[in-house]
């Protein structure tokens, strides 16, 4: 058996490899510190599409196409596609599904969608239920702003804890063919709500959810922070990652330099005016599918835990005074020593 229950919602996986990745981002992400490491950077946010919603679909389509191209596969070779985005009724993922016509599992865990899709894809491929699977996630700054906050051109002041929804999409193709990176274990998160109410401070709200998943993953796998080359959260940002460190040390877990955050990496905090850092499902998806997998593949015996974090609120619940429930899903990958970079 190459898929094994280790503990509640922690599943050990073996024989599942990352065949190829595709990461496509917007112009602001392209100007950030990771800009050179994505497959493609769009010159502007719209790229000639008649609406930003269509632009986001184009972005996701390009990320998936890139991943398949690098894997030398056609869409027809995919058994199943898993993915999600931030928009109501996950229209981006579903509308791209209309083009590729592959069996589609649309999912939503806000900014934790990517690891939810990747974890489930790994289990499907590892169990033999699917020979190949594509996991993806996307977000677009302009479509998300419009849905969650205010109209784009409205001038209002953003507090320092607010995150910048990234224009980014990432896609990963998994199969059982041996490659440079393998999936080792996944842990599905629980919903954690510590009573945070401010949608402009999601990092602080999500940190306890991230810790809960990480702690459960450690317990189930018997690993500790020092066993990882890299532990990367999705979009806790500058404030959230500090919260996570404090939170963890209160519970007796000490993180070192291996702990970092995709949202923190994506932009230059000094010069890009992004406040707490990047967010959105596309943030962790593109950073994983671009820089992270490539860097990990180059490290012998490298091991990484990606913990994407999601704030599960809607504009309605927030306006009705509800607190923000959060979730985090974790995927552990490792380098195999193979030289075919994803």
């Amino acid at each position: 058996m190459s898929v094994l229950r280790l503990a509640t919602a922690t599943v050990g996986v073996s024989g599942v490899y990352v065949q190829a990745c595709g990461a496509v981002v917007g112009p602001k992400e392209g100007e950030g510190p990771l800009g050179q490491e994505f497959d493609r950077v769009w010159p502007d946010e719209g790229k000639g599409y008649s609406s930003f919603e269509k632009a986001e679909q184009g972005l996701l389509q390009e990320a998936c196409d890139t991943a398949l191209q690098k894997a030398a596969m056609s869409w027809d070779a995919l058994d199943v596609v898993l993915g999600g985005d931030l928009l109501d009724q996950t229209v981006t993922t579903n509308f791209v599904g209309r083009t590729h016509e592959r069996p589609l599992l649309g999912m939503f865990a806000a900014c934790a969608t990517f690891t939810e899709a990747l974890a489930l894809a790994a289990i499907l491929v590892g169990s033999g239920a699917a020979a190949t699977a594509l996991a993806s996630a996307s977000s677009h700054h302009l479509t998300a702003e419009r849905q969650f906050r205010f109209p784009l051109e409205l001038g209002y002041q953003r507090p320092p804890t607010s995150a910048w929804t990234s224009t980014a999409a990432g896609a990963v193709v998994l199969s059982r063919e041996w490659r440079a990176i393998q999936v080792q274990a996944v842990t599905f998160g629980r919903v954690v709500d510590i009573g945070g109410k401010d949608p402009n401070d999601m990092g602080s709200a999500m940190a306890p959810a991230a810790f809960d998943t990480i702690e459960r993953h450690f317990k189930a796998t018997g690993l500790k922070p020092a066993d990882y080359t890299e532990i990367v959260t999705g979009d806790l940002g500058h404030f959230g990652i500090d919260m996570l460190k404090t939170y963890a040390s209160d519970k007796g877990v000490q993180f070192g330099d291996e702990l970092n955050d995709c949202g923190r990496w994506l932009y230059d905090a000094q010069n890009q005016d992004t406040h707490n850092g990047g967010s959105g499902p596309g943030c962790s998806a593109s950073v994983f599918a671009g820089p992270l997998t490539r860097r990990l593949a180059a490290i012998p015996h490298g091991r990484m835990l990606l913990v994407a974090t999601g704030a599960l609120f809607s504009p309605t619940t927030y306006q009705q005074g509800e607190t923000i429930p959060c979730i985090a899903h974790a995927v552990q990958i490792a380098s195999t020593g193979g030289d075919s970079a994803p």
């Binding site: 205010f150 109209p151 784009l152 051109e153 409205l154 001038g155 209002y156 002041q157 005016d273």
Partner: peptide, 26 residues
């Protein structure tokens, strides 16, 4: 306008100009 507010701070969010912004943006 959003860049002006970044620069001008609260002054740009006040009614009069802020109101025009609040109508045109949506």
């Amino acid at each position: 306008y959003d860049r002006l507010v970044k620069l001008g701070g609260m002054g740009g969010s006040l009614p009069i100009t802020g109101f025009a912004n609040a109508m045109v943006a949506p």
